[in-house]
Write a protein that binds this DNA or RNA. Sequence first.
DNA 1: CGTACCTTTGATGTGAATCAAGAGTAGTGG
DNA 2: CCACTACTCTTGATTCACATCAAAGGTACG
Lengths: 230, 230
Amino acid sequence: MQESRLDIPQILSRLPLFQELAREQIAALEPACRERRLAKGGMLFQKGDPAKGFFVVVFGQIKLAFPSSQGNEKVVEVLGARQSFGEAVMFMDRPYPVFAEALADSLLMHIGSAPVFALLETDPLFARRMLAGLSTRLHSLVQDVETYSLRSSAQRVVGYLLQHCPESESGESAFDISLPTSKQVIASRLNLTPETLSRIFHDLAANGLIGVSGKQITINDVKRLREFDL
Amino acid sequence: MQESRLDIPQILSRLPLFQELAREQIAALEPACRERRLAKGGMLFQKGDPAKGFFVVVFGQIKLAFPSSQGNEKVVEVLGARQSFGEAVMFMDRPYPVFAEALADSLLMHIGSAPVFALLETDPLFARRMLAGLSTRLHSLVQDVETYSLRSSAQRVVGYLLQHCPESESGESAFDISLPTSKQVIASRLNLTPETLSRIFHDLAANGLIGVSGKQITINDVKRLREFDL
DNA sequence: CGTACCTTTGATGTGAATCAAGAGTAGTGG
DNA sequence: CCACTACTCTTGATTCACATCAAAGGTACG
């Protein structure tokens, strides 16, 4: 949880959004960047806070969630290194509709809105990337709505596992995946209680489809898993 | 369901997205526009169809929904005059994640992607509007996810009614709203069965909060309704 | 090595879906 | 205009998926 000085231009230029920006365009962004360190459990912002820029995860892990009256909460997204969030809210200037909390010690970069708007004025390619980014996010939210609405809890879990399979693993052999965060958080992300998630893992394991050992999930039978997923 | 020729420039220039475009910018869009008429029940596109532009509703009503194995479906959105859809999918060029069906005889305009991309190259204000539009849509989808995840069926119904109240109706007096479409479709939009929606309307009416007569809903007590909504 | 939190497991409860009729309501055509 | 068909909507009985409640294990970390 330390690290002296950051090479902001390098961090920025490695982000998909900012790739292909000229050196001086990156430089223009730099003064609007602020680093933000958070210990595990730290709050980045609350639902309702005003937004005047967006965030990029340099390292660590951040969860976005809705608070709820009865202490329980609904996790909307879990973000890791290289991922960004808050762009949409910046374009509308509205308060954040979710809160953001660190799931691990994290380093974030906050990019103020002013130079982003300036870039938009002068660089159509940048605008295109921004549009593509928002579109992708919109698309995956629509997918989420489909998933929540049309699929059973077990199907949601299987879908989650399948999404997290190392690409191209359609072969015969078993392989492992490591859950990126606690089962509690994953359960909430899938709109389940931890109890239900635990039972589903148990059942899938009992049927030989997967093996569970802490955060290590062994996928024994991708094919039957996919069938399960209908 | 007829009407001879369309004044495309006028239709376009009345859309929020295209307002403030210069005459010649509108003119550049015109050749890429195709009108599309649909009778009630007609299909505009299926889930999985390729997208090469976006749509604007000139008049009528369109529903976007997911098909589902057991014949039931999940309505994602119901769109009326002046509303547009399909932009995100156009920016990613991916197939449509939903299907679109006319709920009433409708006239749509399809705007091909090429001149939109061209406009993006040359008009930063247009890009800004496009970003704002996508951001707004993203925001309301996030709200939907919150609603589906955190609220009971009755709360979702009350929330829906409240959203459809004529603005500023916070006074004492009762007033009516007219449901924009069938209760079936509204039920699906709210992730409910028609039976459940019917029962909730019944209960709210029994408590004197609303009155129901076909598509006319009388809001008797906005205040208690809001409290119900927590 | 103890305290705090995750995770599992079991027993029970419940909100909303499903199943099953009936009661409007609307278009259609003779 | 009425009869026919086809929905849409309501109402009641029943079921079921998942949540809730409760109590142990596990695991991690100061």
